[in-house]
């Protein structure tokens, strides 16, 4: 564990708490892409299949359980209690391409051809692009609530900090895995426009609006 990874994990934790707070406070999931949330649920379930076979630490297990449970809870609540508060007509990104693309990528680029490793790799590639339906929806509507922007910033910062963590781990431990590094870079690049608007507008107290 190093400071980059710890802060990254805490940002990830914070992002989910902010999202839950937004939905509860505004009693609405408006502005949230259901498709992105569904992809995150798939990401966590496929990544943490080793939950019962590979013990790392209590911290690791608790975080895994929380990420699976909270993403499942959000997907469930968006389908049930908050179903009428968001508009599927705005959430039109074709996630079949992301699901299929990640499958192809994990079949070509992986370190071991085993059940757990293939699903882990799939989750890494899928996570890199899971935010696209959300970003696509925001580019269509041209704006986002401030709390939603904070959620997305924390979520984007998590993977960005993981990239720093991987560089740091390579320098200090010689630990290197190029698949998550590359996927983390892709994800961070996809966030670039969002980060720009977040820093130039939301951090200065203005609304998140695309030019």
């Amino acid at each position: 564990m190093n400071v980059f990874r710890l802060v990254a994990d805490l940002m990830h934790l914070a992002s989910i708490l902010i999202l839950l707070l937004k939905i509860r406070k505004t009693r609405s999931a408006a502005g949230i892409s259901f498709k992105s949330q569904l992809l995150y649920l798939i990401v966590f379930v496929t990544r943490y299949l080793d939950l019962f076979t590979h013990w790392v630490s209590l911290y690791n297990t608790a975080m895994k359980v929380f990420f699976i449970a909270s993403s499942g809870y959000i997907v469930y609540q968006m389908q049930r209690r908050y179903r009428a508060t968001w508009d599927p007509a705005l959430d039109t990104f074709r996630i079949e391409f992301l699901l299929g693309g990640a499958a192809v990528m994990s079949l070509i680029f992986h370190t071991k051809f085993t059940f757990l490793e293939l699903f882990w790799t799939y989750s890494i590639w899928l996570e890199a692009v899971a935010i696209l339906p959300q970003l696509f929806q925001m580019s269509r509507t041209g704006e986002a609530e401030t709390i939603t922007a904070h959620y997305l910033f924390a979520l984007g910062a998590y993977r960005g900090l993981y990239v720093v963590n991987w560089i740091y781990r390579y320098a200090t431990e010689g630990y290197w895995e190029w698949i998550p590094f590359l996927a983390g870079m892709v994800q961070t690049v996809l966030y670039a426009d969002f980060f720009y608007v977040y820093f130039s507008r939301v951090m200065r107290g203005k609304k998140f609006e695309l030019p």
């Binding site: 790392v56 010689g174 630990y175």
Partner: peptide, 10 residues
């Protein structure tokens, strides 16, 4: 490069 013996990250 270290052999992945199981992933310790989230």
């Amino acid at each position: 490069a270290a052999e992945p013996v199981g992933h310790d990250e989230l």
